[in-house]
């Protein structure tokens, strides 16, 4: 049984048909990547799974339960947590308060334990825990967004372009972190422009083009596929 199963998902923005019936699965313990060019529908897919956008057709199952119509807050409680595109930290809260908000649905006691684990993964954030999130650098905000998502103890962590706008060294660091996050038992669904690096750490991947899945397979196979190399890896 897959952890997440998306069936024939259709999403519209007014008259714009952003997703035209996509289906895919994520199994427990996997890192799965969605790749595709700008406007392909990756963020729309993530937002719809998180419950921020409601689909006009199709089904979403999580641990075999139909969650298609579930409120976003209940999906978080079920263990689906999205770190959205463009960071979206709470700018007027300190780093510490942002992290605590990430654990809003947990008990305070558990949060105090969890935050120490998160600080181990992101020592920068520990140094800056009293700083207002809005004054952090872009890269630090990105780390905060990922860390905040972890505070909710996700079963499925969805990361929408976690490396956006980061220096190459930091990108490497973030991808290393994603692997460590998986090692501690969290399943990861990843969206990345940085297709090469993303595929290297992923188990499987799907390629989305204008709202449709056009290719899928083991990450290694896609890395070697000529089509993918031409279109997304710039070779």
């Amino acid at each position: 049984m897959p952890l997440l199963k998306v069936e024939n998902l259709v999403v519209n923005y007014g008259s714009i048909n952003a997703l035209k019936g996509i289906s895919f699965e994520v199994n427990k313990g996997e890192i799965v990547t969605l790749i595709g060019s700008n406007g392909a529908g990756k963020s729309t897919t993530m937002n719809t799974i998180a419950g921020l956008k409601s689909p006009s057709g199709g089904k979403i199952y999580f641990e075999d339960n139909d969650i298609t119509k579930l409120d976003s807050s209940k999906r978080v409680k079920a263990g689906i947590i999205l770190s959205p595109e463009g960071r979206q930290v709470f700018p007027e809260f300190s780093v510490y308060d942002n992290l605590m908000m990430g654990g809003f649905i947990q008990k305070k006691k558990d949060n105090l334990v969890e935050i120490e684990k998160v600080f181990e993964l992101f020592p920068v954030l520990k140094e800056r825990k009293k700083q207002m999130a809005g004054t952090l650098s872009g890269g630090e905000q990105q780390m905060l967004a990922v860390a905040r998502a972890l505070m909710g103890k996700p079963k499925l962590l969805m990361l929408d372009e976690p490396s956006m706008g980061l220096a190459p060294l930091i990108v490497k660091e973030i991808f290393g972190l994603i692997q460590r996050i998986r090692e501690i038992g969290t399943t990861v669904l990843l969206v990345e422009q940085n297709a090469r690096v993303a595929l290297k750490i992923s188990d499987r991947a799907y390629v989305i083009e204008t709202g449709k899945i056009v290719l899928s397979g083991k990450a290694q196979e896609l890395l070697e596929s000529e089509d993918v190399q031409k279109a997304y890896l710039g070779m």
């Binding site: 807050s73 978080v76 979206q88 709470f90 809260f93 809003f104």
Partner: peptide
């Protein structure tokens, strides 16, 4: 209070607040 924090978050970024599991 937690509710107060949730109100402040909603004011700062309503979508991100939803992603914290808060029923906005």
């Amino acid at each position: 209070t937690k509710i107060g924090k949730a109100m402040q978050c909603t004011a700062q970024n309503i979508n991100a607040t939803k992603l914290m599991g808060i029923n906005t």
